[in-house]
Design a protein around this nucleic acid. Sequence first.
DNA 1: ATTTCTGTAACTAAACTAATTACATGTAAA
DNA 2: TTTACATGTAATTAGTTTAGTTACAGAAAT
Lengths: 137, 137
Amino acid sequence: MINSRLAVSVHILALIATHPEQLSSEYIAGSVNTNPVVIRRLTGLLRQAGLLQTVAGKTGATLTKDPAAITLLMIYRAVEPKETLFSMHEQPNPACPVGRNIQSTLDDTFVRAQQALEAELEAETLSDVIHRLASAR
Amino acid sequence: MINSRLAVSVHILALIATHPEQLSSEYIAGSVNTNPVVIRRLTGLLRQAGLLQTVAGKTGATLTKDPAAITLLMIYRAVEPKETLFSMHEQPNPACPVGRNIQSTLDDTFVRAQQALEAELEAETLSDVIHRLASAR
DNA sequence: ATTTCTGTAACTAAACTAATTACATGTAAA
DNA sequence: TTTACATGTAATTAGTTTAGTTACAGAAAT
């Protein structure tokens, strides 16, 4: 199971996008229901990815792009360091025809599957999420 | 990162499918490069899913379907108990409009992404993998 | 009977996740 | 300028997951 960092990050960015006032990490943590440090760790990654700006010591964060220009894939990549989705067993037996070629063979499939998933994440923007949040109200 | 059980299971099934003789869990473990118990745990799950048959105490395992009728999605579902791919944070604040609706909103996206991934796994069969293994030789 | 295999429970080490504590440092208002 | 409060980040912890391993019961075959 993929960790909850994407879910929490989308939550954070949706909050920032829909609130004109500056939100503290403590306030955001109250909405997400977690510890403020968890929020600041994620905003740190989102800042490194160029999705928002913060000023140390100063309350709040600001999006650096329009919500319609922020895809869920950007957010996912920002907070998920692992490049490959599927794990593979290490060092299968090179003396066996199957063992020798299983990694490259499976890699083709795994890359395709991962790309299909990422294409869906790329097709959805923060703006889409915000609109669905509003209509769910 | 998704665990390596799918990769190992495909490896196991490809070995069984391409060897007329009966293969012991120890032999398979030698090709995968792991412990025989790891193999038997996975063949147990694959058997429960109806993909192969074994007889306790008797060497070997036999596929119960044609390799062309076994999709990677069947294998994935057989060895991966978790139904949802993405985790979500628990109990976001219901007093906040974002917190109240983030779960159902994100669930839509996560289900779509997971389905896209699973569609790729469904489009590939054990037979496809075996052919690619053979052409890689 | 003895050997060899599978099935499975139980335990372990390593890795990962999220929560938490602690604190350095920056901002801004009194 | 001092005080209060915020962010950034390192370090620690508890819980979970994964794969590897040991141990052993029970089935099969010689």
